[in-house]
């Protein structure tokens, strides 16, 4: 197995990545869904989710990462996240107004509680996760394009 044809880092890094990347993604999702109960939330969880994708990109190269989430896919997810957030806020007009928490609040400290807040967290995590991934892609590609010009 020649090193040249394999994009990305060494076998050790790849193996460790393969073992951990799922856990990182899962932890991100945990932080998002428990945003209303524990420290963290949509933004922090979204960053962790984006980092799992960045992790893939670092270890295996861009192509593998883009197979998981393409550039246009990230853009679509980002827009959907933002629209969801604004949409949830606007649905509140049906009750007492903008950003009104119209869902049943449930028992405090249950996973399914706090009304619209977990939904808002999910929307934010989509926006932040996809957005941060796009930012990293943009920076990487700008650097590649810049170094080619020199």
């Amino acid at each position: 197995m020649s090193k040249e044809r394999q994009p990305g880092m060494t076998l050790i890094v790849k193996t460790v990545t393969r073992l951990t990347v799922g856990l990182i993604l899962l932890y991100g999702i945990y932080v998002v869904t428990h945003g209303h109960l524990t420290p963290g939330g949509g933004f922090a969880g979204g960053v962790v989710i984006a980092l799992s994708l960045v992790h893939l990109m670092l270890a295996f190269g861009g192509d593998v990462a883009f197979k998981t989430l393409s550039k246009s896919g990230a853009a679509v997810l980002e827009a959907i996240g933002a629209l969801l957030f604004v949409g949830i806020a606007i649905i509140g007009f049906g009750w007492a107004g903008f950003f009104f928490n119209f869902l049943p609040k449930g028992t405090p400290f249950d996973l399914f509680s706090a009304g619209i807040i977990p939904l808002c967290n999910i929307a934010i995590s989509l926006k932040v996760g996809a957005g941060l991934f796009s930012v990293v892609i943009a920076i990487v590609f700008l650097r590649v394009a810049g170094s080619e010009r020199e």
């Binding site: 853009a75 827009a79 629209l83 604004v86 606007i90 903008f98």
Partner: peptide
């Protein structure tokens, strides 16, 4: 009042989508 913020925000992301 909140529509002054909500409408352009929603419009912006709808255009992006």
């Amino acid at each position: 009042i909140p529509l002054f913020v909500a409408v352009p925000l929603a419009g912006a992301f709808a255009i992006a989508l």
